[in-house]
Every structure is written in C-alpha cells, then in structure tokens.
C-alpha cells in the first residue's frame, strides 16, 4: 500500500504511457532498419520502410503517438505481497485518463451497446490489467499498446485442419501460422511480429500467444524444438513475399515467438496474435525506496510463464 501512495505511481504510469506510445523498443527499431536496407530501392516497400523510420524519429522527438490507434492497453503488474491492488488499479486508470487528456493516448473505449465512445479511454475491463505476485519488494509495471488492425487479423485454429492438411504436431502448427500470415496480407500493418500460443484452451492459448509478444526479438526460445520452429517460421513467413504494408517485398515479419502450454487430449489449439510493426511496449520498476527505473527493453522476467522465474 505505502509504495503505491508514497511514490506518486500515477505520474510514473503517465510517463510509462507517454514512452510506450511514442517510442519503440530498440530491438524493433533495429529490425525495421534491417528491413529497410533489404528492400529494393525505389519500390513501394522501400518507401514504406523509409516513412516508418522517419515516423519513429518524429514520434520520439515530439512525444506524439507513433500510431493514432493507441490500441488496447495491456498492463502486466508485478507486485510484492500485501500490496493493495485496488489502489494500483486506480492509479493505472487515473494515469490512463491523464495520458488521454495529454494526447499520448486516443479515446479508444467504445460501448458496443450504445455505440458511444467514453471519451477518456476508460471502460469496462479497459484497460486490461493483470496482477502477478512476486518475491521482489519492488513494483514492476509493463504496458503494451496493441492496435485494432493487428488484433483483427489475429486468429485461432483447431488442429487437425483439413484443408491445410495440418496435423496435431509442430509441423501442423507451422502450416496454420503460415496460413494466418498469408490471410493477414498487409492488413495487420506488416512487417509484423507473430506471437504463437500452442495448446491451452481458447482463452489461455490466446493469452500465451499475446504473452510471447513481450519477448525481445533477439530472445531465443529455451525449448529447442520451439526455437527451431520460430527460426523456420521467421524465414518462411518472409518467403511469402507480402512485404511491408502488403506492397510485396522481403520483410513480412520481424520475428515469430512461440510458447506451448498443456492442452486436454481432445483439443489442440494454435492461437496466433499478430502485432503490427509498431510494437509498443514499456516497463518501469519502482523500488520500495522510491527509486524508479524505466526499462528500454522489457525485462526477461516479464516474458516467462511463471512470474517468479529469474529474470
């Protein structure tokens, strides 16, 4: 409780949202630069990558949203025992409203019944907040902004899949991921990052897929078979030739990240979460002393399945 009230967490959270909305993590910028250099000069793909890189510079310099769709805000908050989560949630909601007022975030919450926009980016389960207790005495909050365009091309398959001849194994997983990236074409704002959740049920599988999007692009999967699958899919998705914005080109995805969780014998779901090139993430750690550290890259501990794993 004290850490929440004492250290003006709301202000830190507003800063976190500003940073997430206007600055991309370094690994994503590096991958986009690499993509820019490999597209043919004078092609629409090359022009798109050039504009993307200019946009990254401008957004950072002026603290303006990289993309006007500031998306669903997905918060992961790691906290010590005996902390008041209600207070934390209030701080996050207050910070969200403030960030919207400051134009770091768009008013994005629409009531599907009335059709009305709430006007302050707050709504029911909006933003999305998950709490994880951990053994550290610090609070660590990470936020991911996931736009609607890429969420719309995210999808879920049940194996076996007849028309793709995808069976209940990792090769079947490979086939449906390729199909999903093909179907998305440029609509998810390619080049994208593909999070894959293998197994689970229809909800936990998709959560696992989204969870994979926290990983650094350079991060290698500790499970050898999944690592191999990720590398192969990265290469094969780019062979599809969809390219930036779907203009045709070499850079269709910046990375593929896969995680597997247990399934019941009857179900074999493959959940695919497509993240646009504007993969906006930011993280902050607040120590009990009040010392605050903003992370340019999301710490490893955020990307493990269990919150207490060493990060």
């Amino acid at each position: 409780m004290n850490i929440v009230r004492a250290h003006k967490l709301k202000d830190h959270f507003v800063e976190l949202l500003r940073s997430a909305s206007s600055q991309l993590p370094g690994d994503v910028v590096d991958a986009l630069q690499q993509g820019f250099h490999q597209e043919d000069k004078g092609s629409p793909a090359h022009m798109a990558m050039e504009i993307i890189l200019k946009n990254i510079e401008l957004s950072k310099a002026n603290s303006t949203p990289l993309c006007q769709d500031t998306g669903t805000n997905i918060w992961h908050v790691y906290h010590p025992q005996h902390i008041c989560k209600t207070a934390l949630e209030e701080m996050i909601r207050d910070a969200t409203e403030e960030a919207c007022r400051l134009s770091y975030l768009r008013a994005n919450a629409v009531d599907p019944v009335s059709g009305l926009n709430s006007g302050n980016n707050l709504g029911l389960r909006f933003p999305v907040i998950s709490f994880y207790e951990w053994r550290s005495s610090a609070v660590r909050a990470s936020v991911m902004l996931k736009g609607g365009g890429c969420e719309n091309v995210s999808t879920q398959y049940a194996l076996p899949h007849e028309s793709l001849q995808a069976g209940r194994d990792l090769d079947g997983v490979r086939k449906v991921v390729l199909d999903a990236v093909f179907k998305a074409q440029g609509r998810g704002c390619a080049p994208g990052i593909i999070g894959v959740g293998i197994g689970g049920d229809r909800i936990t599988g998709m959560i696992e897929a989204k969870h994979q999007l926290w990983r650094d692009l350079a991060d290698r999967n500790p499970v050898a078979l999944l690592d191999k699958l990720e590398q192969r899919l990265h290469d094969e998705c780019n062979q599809l030739g969809i390219g930036p914005m779907g203009y045709g080109g070499k850079t269709t995805v910046l990375g593929v990240k896969a995680g597997a969780i247990h399934r019941v014998p009857a179900s074999y779901f493959v959940s695919i979460s497509y993240m646009c090139w504007a993969s906006r993430k930011a993280s902050v750690t607040i120590a009990p002393s009040g010392k605050t550290t903003f992370h340019k890259r999301v710490p490893r501990s955020m990307t493990c399945n269990t919150p207490n794993c060493k990060g």
Binding site: A48, K54, N55, L66
Partner: peptide, 26 residues
C-alpha cells in the same frame, strides 16, 4: 503507410471543421 501517424500528421496543415463529434466520438 499504416502506423506512420506522426509523419502523416505533419502533412495535415489545418482542420477546417468536425462533424458529428458528439455522436460518433473523436
């Protein structure tokens, strides 16, 4: 270019008008 929103905003010189702001939201 999808996502290149700050870049594109620079080419918007002026907003002349807005219609149905209350009904449809920003």
């Amino acid at each position: 270019t999808g996502g290149a929103a700050s870049f594109i905003a620079r080419s918007i010189r002026k907003i002349h008008n807005v219609y149905m702001l209350d009904e449809l939201g920003p």
